[in-house]
């Protein structure tokens, strides 16, 4: 499965790699949700640094995790998204979840 998960006291970090499409989004979702539901973190960090392709299934993946974290009173941060993936995120207006934007505004979603 192309996702490595680090769990520490306050956060879950999901290092996603490879391609995110409808075919593999379900398995990514299951793996990330399992880690989140096990540890109830304050922050879910989704690291897209090693993602080579993403279509709107990736948007669904982020939006679904955003809702999950909101239900847990936590937040979500997107790290290291390559340019082509930021372009897809911009279509959905979710670039405000990107770490750079987060830091710029000094507040988290």
């Amino acid at each position: 499965m192309p996702v490595d998960i680090d769990i520490d006291e306050k956060s879950v970090t999901a290092y996603i790699s490879g391609e995110i499409d409808h075919h593999n989004a379900g398995a990514l979702r299951a793996k990330i949700d399992e880690a989140v539901e096990m540890s109830y973190p304050e922050v879910l960090i989704m690291d897209f640094g090693a993602v080579t392709f993403m279509d709107s299934s990736g948007i669904g993946l982020v939006m679904g995790r955003y809702k999950l974290m909101r239900d847990l009173c936590g937040r979500i941060i997107i790290e290291n998204a390559p340019r082509s993936i930021k372009k897809v995120m911009r279509m959905a207006g979710i670039e405000k979840l990107l770490s750079a934007e987060n830091k710029k505004e000094g507040s988290f979603v």
């Binding site: 979702r29 279509d55 709107s56 993946l61 939006m63 809702k67 279509m91």
Partner: peptide, 14 residues
Amino acid sequence: TGERAGLGFSIMES
């Protein structure tokens, strides 16, 4: 299920 964004045509178009 809330896991599909509904952005397929928007992405194709843009």
